[in-house]
Amino acid sequence: MPTPALFDPDLLAQRRARAARIGGADFLQEAVADEIAERLQEVNRSFQAPAIVGPKAALWQARLCLPGATLADDSETLALAPAAHDLVVHALALHWANDPVGQLVQCRRALRPDGLLLAVLFGGETLTELRQALAAAEVATLGGLSPRVAPMGEIRDLGGLLQRAGFAMPVADSRRFDVSYAGAVELMRDLRAMGETNVLCERLRRPMRREMLARAAAAYAAAAGRPDGRVRATFEVIVLTGWAPAPDQPKPLRPGSATTRLEAALRDAGDPKSR
């Protein structure tokens, strides 16, 4: 029996189309893409056949300086040819996948032996302030809870996805981005412009009451207010790094024995002379 879908892909496409019409909220995509560009500079390798997966693939292509990259939507079946790429960047979209392991398996199959995957997605601390404020307001207003913010995976669980998908030398790490807003309403407006609003299949099908919105905004300001009168919004970005298996790759160390930083591991794994 198939596992019920967590997200509504048709609604996600509609929300992304609406976000494209609104525009003006790509700052987080740009900041994260710039972070990945710095990581790629640490890899001693020139990628000749890269691919970028995600709704903002063209933006990432420009920020990563990969003019010849293949661009693909993060649809259920990725439009990537088998063993065609030496780099695949899954760009800030995997958190919306109903089958994230399937997405990663397709990325591995699209890589040549010893090709690099960088899968970037939002992690469990993302929007934690909004999640708590909405929960408190909904309990006070409606007497119960409904799914309003998508669940995000924890870094330990997400790292395990790489192993399940068959990647060698898997690494998962996180980077936190703190963004300030005038209030919760402004944050929610920005999430709409980002295309990152609620598309859970089990979501409520009616608009939020004004009373609940006001309670949520007040709870948000009380819990995450800053001295300047603005509020904090947390975005945790998880980066999953893995290599398509190849015979001459370094063997992984036993658990707990690692002494090398991620940047050095990327650099050494990308340098054939270091093997």
Rank of each mutant, 00 (worst) to 15 (best):
P247M: 04
V149A: 04
A58Q: 13
I52W: 03
P2Q: 12
L78S: 10
S146C: 02
W96S: 02
Q249E: 01
R164W: 00
V120I: 05
A91K: 05
D173E: 12
V149N: 03
A37Y: 08
E202Y: 03
R275H: 12
A224F: 09
P100G: 05
G225E: 08
P4S: 11
A79H: 07
A246P: 04
A72H: 08
D73P: 10
E38H: 11
M188Y: 02
A49G: 03
P4M: 10
P147T: 03
F177R: 09
F167D: 05
A244P: 04
C201Y: 03
T77G: 08
F167S: 05
F27G: 12
V237W: 03
R156N: 03
P245N: 07
P227I: 07
A51I: 13
Y181F: 15
A214C: 03
E35H: 11
A72F: 02
H90R: 08
L71F: 13
D228V: 07
R109G: 02
D74Q: 10
F27I: 08
V199E: 07
E30H: 13
S146K: 02
R192I: 13
A58R: 14
M152P: 02
M212F: 07
L142R: 01
L262C: 05
E154P: 00
V32P: 06
R226N: 15
G54A: 07
F167M: 06
G115E: 02
L6N: 08
A79M: 06
R192T: 13
A19Q: 13
L94I: 08
R21P: 12
Q61G: 12
L71E: 11
Q103R: 09
G195E: 10
E35S: 11
E76M: 09
A265R: 12
A265C: 07
A31H: 09
R45G: 01
V179R: 11
